[in-house]
Design a protein around this nucleic acid. Structure first.
Length: 657
RNA sequence: GGGCGCGUAGCUCAAGCGGAUAGAGCAUCGGAUUUCUAAUCCGAGGGUUGCAGGUUCAAUUCCUGCCGCGCCUACCA
């Protein structure tokens, strides 16, 4: 509703400026006044116009106010401060629309969106850094879907890289395990934990003797080649770990539609198709001299050519194809992204891989595939949720697309970049790691899978559930065990997802158990609790919520809204209604800036307002029937909007807390 | 060396492409008719927004220079 009125206001001002001054402003800035007493929208446009019109800002604002005339949904316009144009909405109008829950139809944006997130190396358990990626990605998917976009979710699996090779080397050369023994291990719960430790040991083992590193290289080649025992084991291990990753993410209600694997990119020769096009278009250049002699190189993203020649300075070169003819990671990524946009002329084969409890199937790439499958790829727009360290590589892929002449694809390629999750020195010490003096002085320490240094996703989730469970047990001993477990799980997910979303993307999260395990203050459970409180009001009062919602349209006469939402107390209540009206507006803002944190903040603020309201107004004991109805309507609308917004963050409120 | 990002309360973070008195949570201290469950609420203290200039009616925000920190900068993936 808020968003709807804002658009209307923008249009109105545009028309007015055009008619009165024949001025067209490229952008009409609309802000929110610091206090609701000043109105709901503030426009500083008079300051901007002052120079053009050679008049005092205040004077201009006065002219605009005088000339605007009435507008549906608005009460009035006024001049404030040195020349702000403030708009007051018609509170009755907004409240009525909220009660009726009619959403003004938005313009449909067509074209499929592809979001790639998670992309965890399938060689060890997922850790908190992966959680941030997956939660950000999944939330962005939910934001897009709530805005009516059609979205495919992909999780890229690098199953032929060194990291998988390392674990296979560990099984074969350190533990000397047979295939049957490995299969037995896979059948055990949390095979990914086993690999976590083994991976750390292998990394150590490489340091011990240089010939060990040669074994690694041999294993890597065998895996890339395929059709041998090492490759078979790599597939066995990586598939098992991948399955574990899907299970872990499923605990957080994160699902994928398709898992493209590097093994198919290799074996279906995606690179060959891309290589031809890249050579033809001159994106790739064969280097004859210098340290990169014999390689196919391209210009690194962010470096600009100083001369008009095709030569690239050596330090600006990015090797795509090595002198031995093998292609590196970026090259495969270019081919993969050409496929995403339907520009490669090749496709994967597909088969089903994982079925979620709700019946949704997750597909995986394969060499053979099944005849009947959904179509992936060939989309209009893509978002890659990949951490900030990869921004140069991402930029290089975009530049390659541009070089191939696919500017439109490049324009619709978004690197959804975010910063890493690190550990506070205290947290690292709690986990039992020896810290150097240098590390202790740092504000945070980077996690390292290679060193086995980090917090595993499942461990964190287990801890959160246990901690929530203890609280639920003491509060609701009367409930059956499975229900308490259910509630604790919802609270744990709420806490974890909110924790990962409340920071803006480009701030490094210094992870700390105390903060992450907190259920008080700015946390997911705080917002869930507000919803539970609203639910309790209806339950205790003997109302059926759904039925109450249906009866609401006719229950309160419009003039009652006007009366109860004005005056000093009314304005306080109005702030809550106003917050509830902003869901669509905030979602739109999150999408425009690729920043889910705005929605998290908004939910928290709304929950805060609700809790204040809850304390100030005892509803069920309210003697005046009309006022009671209105207060119930307030609780109903806020509850509905909070649930809606939390659902977009992938958080559900439990029935009781 | 070059590129990108960051520096805001004791701590962790906000602040809508420059806007009105820079806001939250945690921590600390002091309070809340035993109520629609306190996973809550109210209040207090705490700031020269790293430093120095510049642009502007207006700078935490933009520009320049310093200081400090992080990441990237492999014929590894």
């Amino acid at each position: 509703m808020y968003r709807h009125l804002e658009r209307r206001l923008t249009q109105k001002i545009r028309d007015f400026l055009q008619q009165t001054y024949s001025i067209e402003l490229p952008r009409i800035v609309i802000e929110q006044p610091p206090k609701v007493e000043f109105g709901e929208y503030a426009l500083p446009l008079a300051f901007e116009l002052a120079k053009k019109l050679r008049k005092a800002p205040r004077k201009i604002a006065e002219e605009i106010v005088a000339g605007l005339g009435p507008q549906e949904g608005f009460e009035k316009f006024e001049v404030a401060g040195a020349g702000y144009l403030n708009a007051r909405v018609d509170r009755e109008y907004v409240a009525k629309a909220l009660v009726e829950d009619k959403n003004p139809e938005r313009e449909k944006v067509s074209g499929k969106v592809l979001v790639e997130h998670s992309s965890i190396n399938p060689n060890k358990a997922a850790h908190i850094g992966h959680l941030r990626n997956a939660i950000l990605g999944d939330t962005f998917v939910r934001l897009l879907r709530s805005a009516g976009r059609e979205v495919d979710v992909q999780n890229y699996i690098d199953n032929t890289g060194v990291q998988v090779a390392d674990v296979v080397v560990g099984f074969l050369y350190i533990e000397k395990k047979s295939r049957t023994e490995i299969e037995k291990l896979i059948a055990q719960p949390r095979f990914d934990y086993y690999c976590w430790d083994l991976y750390a040991r292998v990394s150590q083992w490489y340091e011990e003797a240089s010939e060990n590193k040669k074994i690694r290289l041999k294993a890597l080649h065998e895996i890339e080649q395929g059709g041998n025992e090492t490759a078979l084991l790599a597939d066995l291990v990586s598939t098992a770990v991948l399955r574990r990753h899907l299970e872990t993410m499923d605990r957080l209600d994160i699902e994928y539609d398709f898992l493209p694997r590097e093994s198919e990119i290799l074996r279906l020769h995606f690179w060959d198709a891309a290589f031809t096009k890249l050579k033809e278009s001159g994106v790739l250049i064969f280097e004859n001299e210098g340290k990169n002699a014999g390689c196919w190189v391209m210009r690194r993203a962010g470096t600009s050519s100083t001369t008009e020649t095709t030569e690239i300075a050596e330090e600006d070169q990015k090797v795509i194809v090595r002198s031995n003819g093998t292609v590196g990671y970026v090259g495969k990524d270019i081919a993969y992204h050409m496929w995403k946009f339907g520009l490669l002329g090749r496709d994967f084969h597909y088969e089903k891989f994982y079925r979620y409890p709700n019946g949704h199937d997750c597909w995986i790439s394969s060499e053979q595939g099944v005849p009947d499958h959904p179509h992936f790829g060939n989309v209009a727009e893509i978002y890659n949720v990949i951490d900030a360290r990869q921004s140069e590589a991402q930029g290089t892929v975009i530049e390659a697309l541009r070089g191939l002449g696919h500017n439109e694809a490049a324009d619709h390629y978004t690197h959804f970049s975010y910063e890493m999750v690190a550990l506070t020195p205290r947290c690292a010490a709690d986990l039992g790691y020896q810290l150097s003096e240098e590390d202790k002085a740092k504000s945070y320490i980077e996690v390292s899978g290679r060193k086995g240094f980090g917090v595993k996703a499942d461990d964190l989730l287990d801890k959160l559930i246990a901690s929530a469970k203890a609280e639920v047990d003491s509060r609701h001993p009367e409930l059956p065990g499975c229900e308490r477990e259910n509630i604790a799980t919802k609270i744990a997910i709420g806490a974890l997802r909110y924790f990962m979303l409340k920071f803006t993307k480009n701030s490094v999260i210094a992870f700390d158990f105390k903060e992450a395990l907190s259920f008080e203050g700015e946390t997911g459970p705080y917002a869930q609790y507000a919803i539970v409180r609203a639910t309790n009001i209806f339950r205790k009062g003997g109302y059926d919520i759904a039925e109450f919602g249906r009866s609401l349209r006719s229950a309160i006469p419009p003039e009652e809204f006007k009366r109860l939402l004005t005056g000093e107390n009314g304005t306080e209540l109005w702030e809550l209604w106003l917050a509830a009206s902003k869901t669509a507006h905030v979602i739109e803002q999150c999408l425009a800036t690729s920043e889910p944190a705005y929605l998290a903040k908004h939910i928290f603020q709304t929950a805060q307002l609700f809790n204040t309201f809850y304390h100030r107004y005892p509803i069920l004991t309210e003697a005046v029937e009309a006022k009671k109805k209105f207060l119930l309507a307030t609780a109903f609308v806020v509850r509905r909007e909070l649930m809606r917004a939390l659902a977009v963050l992938g958080i559900q409120a439990p029935p009781v807390m």
